[in-house]
Write a protein that binds this DNA or RNA. Structure first.
Length: 260
DNA sequence: CCGGATGTTCACCT
DNA sequence: GAGGTGAACATCCG
């Protein structure tokens, strides 16, 4: 997925779907319906109504349905949102160059003939009616210094794992987290609770800067570390050989020379 | 042919 | 309880 930056783009795409009457719902893929959501339930909740607002918490896109319900959309690694056939993001890293309508896992049709479709080749995303937003931590883009301190707490888990724990901090994916830790000169393997005040401030400042910076550049894959995410590459900052390991269950590239 | 890849969830360990 | 691992989802790429 789309990490937080891409989902924010989808949120703006979804804004084009607001205030248009829904006349039908396409939700035939039962696997794609999460949290016990039923197809009939979706139809009842959406048909005849309009989306009133497009919100986001971390990587979860939330569409308010006339104060009646909330439609939650998740995009997994390869999901895209298309409104009237156009996507906010034409091509996703690690997804497909093809673009097959057979990958449409969920959609609605509007009275004006337009559509909003969630197209996801790998079916890693999902749709849920009234998702429990409180299961997510605070949004990474707006978290404050004190909030970030709470996220790390006294945890002995690796720093990277904690930052990617959506229940503690919502929005950080694998690429953004590696980029942030690389820029902040912090090892992904550090115990999350071991940062001193200076390091915590540096992490907070860097996190904010990475999100703003990469949003402007065009996405989670536009970081300074990105081109070096391959075996044998050197650190773009100091040329030292990058380490590749698994942290928090995800492939991690980092520079042992300057990330401590 | 095989192994991974912007993710989440769950079962099963320690 | 806290962490860690591996599987599942499906497709493409090197």
């Amino acid at each position: 997925m789309p990490e937080i930056l891409e989902v924010e783009t989808y949120r703006r795409t979804a804004a084009r779907a607001l205030a248009r009457e829904v006349v039908s719902v396409q939700a035939d893929d039962a696997w794609f319906l999460k949290g016990g959501t039923q197809r009939e339930e979706l139809a009842v909740s959406l048909v005849g109504r309009r989306f009133g607002a497009a919100r986001r918490r971390g990587k979860l896109l939330l569409l308010d349905v006339e104060a009646e319900a909330v439609l939650g959309l998740r995009f997994g690694m390869t999901g895209r949102l298309l409104v009237d056939g156009a996507a906010g993001i034409e091509r996703l890293e690690y997804s497909s160059d093809r673009d097959d309508p057979a990958w449409d896992r969920f959609g609605v049709t509007f009275a004006d003939g337009g559509t909003m479709v969630l197209r996801d080749p790998r079916r890693l995303g999902g749709v849920e009616l009234d998702p429990d937003v409180e299961r997510l931590g605070p949004d990474a883009w707006s978290i404050g210094l004190a909030g970030l301190r709470d996220v790390l707490g006294a945890s002995t888990a690796p720093l990277k794992a904690r930052l990617m724990d959506q229940g503690r901090l919502a929005g950080m994916g694998n690429l953004l987290t590696d980029e942030t830790l690389w820029r902040a000169a912090l090892s992904p393997e550090r115990e999350a609770g071991s940062l001193d005040t200076t390091e915590l401030r540096r992490l907070h400042r860097t996190l904010r800067r990475v999100l703003d910076d990469l949003a402007q550049r065009g996405g989670s894959h536009t970081g300074d570390l990105q081109a070096s995410r391959r075996p044998g590459a050197g650190c773009p900052r100091d040329g030292a050989p990058l380490a590749r390991s698994t942290v928090g269950g995800r492939t991690t590239y980092w520079c042992p020379a300057h990330q401590r």
